[in-house]
C-alpha cells in the first residue's frame, strides 16, 4: 500500500531528526499584525492582542508547593487590575478574602497565584492544582466563575464547578474555600448545592463576553504563572 510506505518513511525521518535533536525550524508566524487592530489576519492564533497589557516583569514565577496542606487559588490575568469586581458587582478583594478564609477555617494553607497563560477557568484551576502542594487547586476568573480542581483530572473536568457567576455570593466563595480544603483533608465532601437561573443568559451573557474579552486581552503565554501577593 503506497500510503503506508510513504508514511513509514516519513515517520522514520522525523524520529531520526527528533532524536538527533535537530528539529525542523518551526515556520515563522505569518501574521504581521503586531497587535495592531485591523491588521491581524488571524494566523497568529490570537496570541497577539491589540490591547495594552499590564507588564508583570519582575514578578516571581509561581513555584511548585511542597506543603501538603496547601490549596492554591489561580486567579485570572485581569484579576484585581483591569477588573476589580465580578459580573454581579462583588469586589474581588472580598471574593479572594473569603476563599482564603474558607481554606484557613478548615486548617489548610491558602496561596494565590495569577495564571497568565490562559483565561479559561478550568485550565486556571488545573494549573493551580498542579503547583499546589496538596494537588488541590481553585480556578477563579475575574468575572467570578470558579472551579475546584485536582491535578490528575482532565482539564475540562473538575471536582466542583460554579458556572453561573451572576448567582455567586461571598458566602459561596467562602464555602468553595472550605470544600477545597476538605478535599485536601480527604474528608467525604458534600458538594455545594447547585444554583440555577434559567434567565441568566438573557441578563448577563453580553456582559460576560465583554469581561472575558478584557481578561483574555491580558493573557501572556511568555509568563505563564506568577505568585500573586496582592490578593
Amino acid at each position: 500500500m503506497e500510503i503506508n510506505e510513504q508514511l513509514i518513511e516519513q515517520i522514520a525521518k522525523i524520529v531520526l531528526e527528533q532524536i538527533n535533536g535537530k528539529p525542523e525550524p518551526a515556520a515563522a508566524s505569518t501574521c504581521t499584525c503586531g497587535g495592531q487592530p485591523g491588521k491581524c489576519n488571524g494566523s497568529c492564533a490570537g496570541k497577539k492582542s491589540p490591547a495594552v497589557k499590564t507588564s508583570y516583569e519582575g514578578y516571581a514565577p509561581a513555584k511548585k508547593g511542597t506543603d501538603p496542606k496547601e490549596v492554591v487559588v489561580g486567579v485570572g490575568p485581569a484579576f484585581q487590575k483591569e477588573i476589580r469586581n465580578t459580573i454581579n458587582g462583588l469586589n474581588l478583594d472580598d471574593v479572594i478574602g473569603n476563599i482564603k478564609a474558607g481554606i484557613e477555617e478548615e486548617g489548610m494553607v491558602p496561596r494565590v497565584v495569577k495564571v497568565l497563560k490562559t483565561s479559561d477557568v478550568c485550565f486556571m484551576g488545573l494549573e493551580a492544582a498542579k503547583i499546589s502542594g496538596s494537588g488541590i487547586g481553585i480556578g477563579l476568573q475575574s468575572k467570578g466563575t470558579a472551579v475546584i480542581h485536582q491535578k490528575d483530572l482532565y482539564p475540562l473536568s473538575n471536582l466542583e464547578l460554579f458556572p453561573q457567576a451572576p448567582l455567586m455570593t461571598l458566602e459561596t466563595y467562602r464555602a468553595i474555600g472550605k470544600n477545597a480544603a476538605k478535599y485536601v483533608k480527604g474528608e467525604k465532601v458534600s458538594p455545594i448545592e447547585g444554583q440555577n437561573d434559567p434567565m441568566v443568559r438573557a441578563k448577563y451573557q453580553v456582559k460576560a463576553a465583554l469581561m472575558h474579552i478584557k481578561e483574555t486581552e491580558q493573557v501572556d503565554v511568555s509568563r505563564p504563572i506568577i505568585e500573586w501577593t496582592e490578593a
Partner: peptide
C-alpha cells in the same frame, strides 16, 4: 513531536491503522 510520531508508528506497527497514523502525522 517525537511522541506523536511514535504514536503514529505504534498505530501502524501494532494495529495496521494506516489512516489513523496518517491523521496523527
Amino acid at each position: 513531536k517525537l511522541e506523536l510520531v511514535t504514536m503514529a508508528k505504534e498505530l501502524i506497527d501494532n494495529y495496521q491503522a494506516v489512516n489513523c497514523a496518517k491523521l496523527v502525522m
